[in-house]
Computed example of a mutant assay.
Amino acid sequence: MSNANNHTINDDIPTLSGAVLLAQAPANIQCQITHHIESTGARVTLVENGQQVLEQTLNADFDLILMSINMPVLDGIETLKGLRQLGNNTAVYALTSEATAKGKDEFSQQGFKGGLVYPIELPKLYAVLQSHLRSPQQTKSPKNAQSDSLKAKIAELKPIFLASLRTQFGQLNEHIERRDFAQIIKILHIVKGSAGNFGYNNLTDVANSALVSLRLQQFDDAPALLAKVMVCIDKILNGKESCDTKN
């Protein structure tokens, strides 16, 4: 007979509140993890490399970070070191394939809270989420206003963001020509999640509109919305601090 009072996690979806940063999982697995996390009620921000992890955590609070060991720009271990140097003590779990999986002790020795192995087992994922996210009844103190030093850090990282945006601009061009909507969605999610941190709220808005259209498979509307995204990025890359696509 099962014990109704125990804390064993099963495949039932928990109801949670909080923010998760997901970094550079393989595309198919990334979609699955995002779906399972969002199904709990939690929010997911996607990034594609270690540098973007640092950028995101400078300007937003996350309850949990899941990131691949083998990321470009900065790998998982170097990114974790960077987070700790910035004074960020958010729980970080390593994502890795079975072939490269390390033992729990090895992850702990490197500073990770733990590890999740592809393919991700739902009970283990939900257990991790429940350990670090909140139930809807729980509250969290609001984020303090940015300090001068934090603002200086964001200003320091802005050129790196713009360099990444230039790369994403080229990638979007290629994927739009190929009508590779899966890759377009992935890039738009990253752009939407990072642009606002550097003051480009218009880009966040147009990227979100295009993203929603593609997720709803409203492909007739997609070309015009994607064109707005590309115009907006082009203006930013050419030195404009905002991008009103109506002009």
Rank of each mutant, 00 (worst) to 15 (best):
F62W: 03
K102R: 08
V128H: 00
S149E: 14
K153H: 07
N59T: 12
G41F: 09
T139R: 12
L86D: 13
S141M: 09
L64C: 11
L133T: 04
A60M: 10
L58A: 14
K113F: 09
M67Y: 05
L58N: 12
L150F: 07
S108M: 15
Q85I: 14
D63A: 07
E121A: 15
E98K: 12
V92H: 00
K140E: 14
A99N: 11
Y126E: 04
A145Q: 10
A94T: 05
K81M: 12
A60W: 03
D63I: 05
S97H: 03
E156M: 13
T45R: 06
D75E: 06
I77M: 07
R84N: 12
N70V: 06
K140H: 08
A60G: 00
L129K: 01
Q52T: 04
L80D: 01
H35Y: 10
L125W: 03
G50M: 05
L150Q: 15
N88A: 12
G82I: 04
Q56R: 15
Q109V: 15
S68H: 02
Q109K: 13
A99H: 09
F62L: 07
N88C: 14
D148T: 09
A91D: 15
T34W: 04
N49R: 01
T34D: 02
D63W: 02
F112C: 04
K143G: 06
L129M: 10
Q85F: 08
A101T: 05
G41L: 09
N88S: 14
E48Y: 08
M67S: 10
Q51S: 11
A127V: 04
Q137F: 10
